[in-house]
Design a protein around this nucleic acid. Structure first.
Length: 223
DNA sequence: TAGTGTCC
DNA sequence: CACG
């Protein structure tokens, strides 16, 4: 086991599991390196298709600021933000149509990721698609608009690398930083389900097929 | 506070 | 770090 010291709370013990690609972070949080690479061709094809139906758009926060991350959704429910607040909606406010169905390639990856770290009954009904162009960021926040915190969060990273910050249960708590690269998956649930997390501004990058970072976040939003 | 501008 |  390799201890990685991070500040006052010694937040992180990071160690390698039996599977060389799976690392556990703090409690009930896992990094699966390169886990999404196997099916990436199908994944990207499905992504392109569903974004034609529900395009990426920059949503507005309740405070009135435009988010630097462009978003869309697929699945029964989609996360939306506007001046009224954050919530899940069955329909895309841009098209007034239901969000595109969650492709099998998406669902399978999410469930396999969750199973790989012990969440055997993950049934996502929502997939938030985040596009980070160079410079885009996501400040520390909690995923707490879902109805059932017993199900984990599965986050899939594609394209440009980014630094993921994983914190505590208050915004000011010490955070740890993880480099998330193309194909990496982060899963957190249980006692870590409501930890603050965020993404530092994405830097102009390497020679990737995508000139941006795409993040797929799978959740059980409804009951 | 799922942001931003500004100060020291 | 204050601001809304």
């Amino acid at each position: 086991m390799r201890f990685v010291g991070f500040g006052k709370e010694k937040l992180m013990d990071l160690f390698t599991d039996q599977q060389p690609t799976v690392q556990q972070i703090v409690k009930d949080a896992y990094l699966l390196k390169s886990f999404a690479l196997r099916n990436q061709t199908q994944l990207l094809a499905d992504l392109t298709q569903l974004l034609e139906a529900s395009p990426l758009r920059n949503m507005v926060t309740p405070g009135g600021f435009s988010m630097s991350v462009a978003m869309s959704n697929c699945g029964e429910l989609g996360w939306v933000s506007d001046r009224k607040g954050y919530r899940y909606a069955t329909h895309d406010p841009l098209t007034d149509k239901p969000w595109p169905a969650m492709p099998n390639s998406f669902r399978t990856l999410a469930q396999q990721s969750a199973s790989a770290v012990g969440y055997e009954n993950f049934h996502p009904d929502a997939c938030l698609i985040n596009q980070y162009k160079v410079g885009a960021r996501m400040s520390l926040h909690q995923d707490k608009n879902e109805l059932d915190f017993n199900q984990p969060i599965v986050s899939v990273s594609l394209g440009l690398p980014a630094i993921f910050q994983f914190g505590g249960f208050e915004r000011a708590d010490k955070t740890v930083s993880l480099l998330l690269e193309h194909g990496d998956v982060v899963v957190w649930g249980g006692e870590s389900r409501l930890r603050f997390h965020g993404i530092l501004p994405v830097k102009a990058g390497q020679n990737t097929a995508l000139n941006c970072r795409i993040n797929l976040t799978f959740r059980r939003a409804g009951k």
